[in-house]
Design a protein around this nucleic acid. Structure first.
Ligand code: MN
Ligand code: MN
Ligand code: MN
Ligand code: MN
Lengths: 239, 239
DNA sequence: GAAATAAGTTAGTATGTCCTAACTTTTCCC
DNA sequence: GGGAAAAGTTAGGACATACTAACTTATTTC
């Protein structure tokens, strides 16, 4: 009864399910660039029990989407990476479209895109992208992978790692926590904004920032979710 | 282990799954107005085995979404009807939006909407509707249910039932078969078009139509998928 | 109204995804 | 390097959805 089905399982042309796409995205995000993703880390990102991840990860490895060595985490294969980037492109184009064309506030696009990314066809995503002028980043500043599967993987410094006295332009903020996004919006810490670190209190204390004539103070947890492109300035980076 | 889950199953506030929403839509479409939907008919519409329908239908009845009498078909309950109309609204708003805002051709909106209807939030659907000016019909002329769950349930005559000599305005065409839609488009048999039945060959033969100075001939199978609002004219209806 | 046919159901199975509990392997630390 | 802690896996089960095969009920036809 499963012979025919087995046969049709050529290499990998069946559409992936929503959970599978989410696993691949999570694994990509964790091991961005190269590193292996740990079971527990995947579980935490997806809010699943580690045991569930063990099971799924084995199936994904069987399908050739990732390389799995028991007890030692997983890495995307080329095919898995392609699938992850395809979903990531969908997600980010959708976010950009919702914000641009439908007036969605930036703190609510993520949740919507998290579901739509699995239902939208390539054609829809391409039309969305075309309609809003082929954006290169989503509303949170994350780069949108191209159709052929390339992305800008530049690693930026977080505001928590910028030295006192240094300046940077905000390029990207974490996009999953709506409340955080609303707060950043209030502070107008938005992609494109130029910010200078004025001071940093010891023992993970508040970081004082200047932006234009505005001054404000945020905690390191928040600062670590704001990525900046450092500007050549009077100071360097701190470890 | 399942006590907590059982408990939270109050009456009906958990989101419905995609298959469930599709069942409800199918049952609504079959028994529109009142009639009961037969197992086989549901199975055929959803391209499932009848046995699968028997199983699902029992579960939906347990959830209070439909009234089921073994061997005698099902009817939507009030709660089931509400859910069906909610999905139908989503489907049609999405179709309208895709056509209007993204330039989708009318033969491809249905398939896309069939998936998106399960992933889009109410907010998204409402924003789409607002953006294109709260349309009352989808690209195929089907009425869009309102947010509070009312729809125009007028039953129209099909072109196959219009008497020779009678005229009507096309109000709606069947939306599932892309090839048929493309053909109707070529003939420009579109919602809003005024059409007169010129002649009808016996034994289910071709029906000759006139529209403006154009004349054309279609089979009864196709004609039955075109609904018209008859115009008071020189002829009535044929049985 | 009984046989034939159609319609519908049940039984048993499969697949995908998830869970908890119990176990195993790896890593950390003295 | 050996034991504790952390990380990860397996075992066993639940649930939703689908299927085929075999059976039952309803409808049609003579
Ligand atoms: Mn998702
Ligand atoms: Mn984003
Ligand atoms: Mn659907
Ligand atoms: Mn339609």
């Amino acid at each position: 009864m499963s012979a025919a089905r087995e046969e049709s399982r050529v290499p990998g042309r069946e559409p992936l399910t929503a959970p599978v796409e989410d696993y691949l995205k999570a694994i990509y995000a964790i091991g961005r660039g190269s590193g292996a993703a740990a079971t527990n880390e995947i579980a935490q990102r997806l809010a699943l029990a580690p045991a569930s991840v063990s099971g799924m990860v084995r199936r994904l490895a069987d399908q050739g989407l990732l390389a799995y060595e028991r007890y030692h985490g997983v890495k995307l294969t080329e095919s898995g990476r392609r699938a992850a980037l395809r979903t990531l492109r969908r997600h980010r184009v959708i976010e950009a479209y919702l914000a641009e064309a439908l007036g969605y506030p930036w703190d609510r696009v993520h949740e919507e895109a998290e579901r739509l990314e699995h239902a939208a066809s390539d054609e829809l995503v391409d039309r969305m992208a075309a309609t809003i002028g082929e954006p290169e980043v989503d509303p949170h500043g994350a780069p949108i992978p191209t159709k052929d599967g390339s992305v800008d993987e530049t690693e930026y410094t977080s505001l928590a790692d910028l030295a006192v006295g240094a300046s940077g332009v905000v390029v990207r903020v974490a996009d999953e926590d709506p409340e955080m996004l609303r707060y950043l919006g209030e502070l107008s810490i938005l992609p494109g904004k130029r910010i200078t670190v004025k001071s940093r209190a010891p023992y993970d204390g508040p970081i004082t920032l200047g932006s234009g004539r505005q001054e404000m103070s945020i905690g390191p947890a928040l600062a670590s979710h704001v990525l900046v492109a450092p500007l050549a300035d009077r100071a360097g980076k701190r470890g």
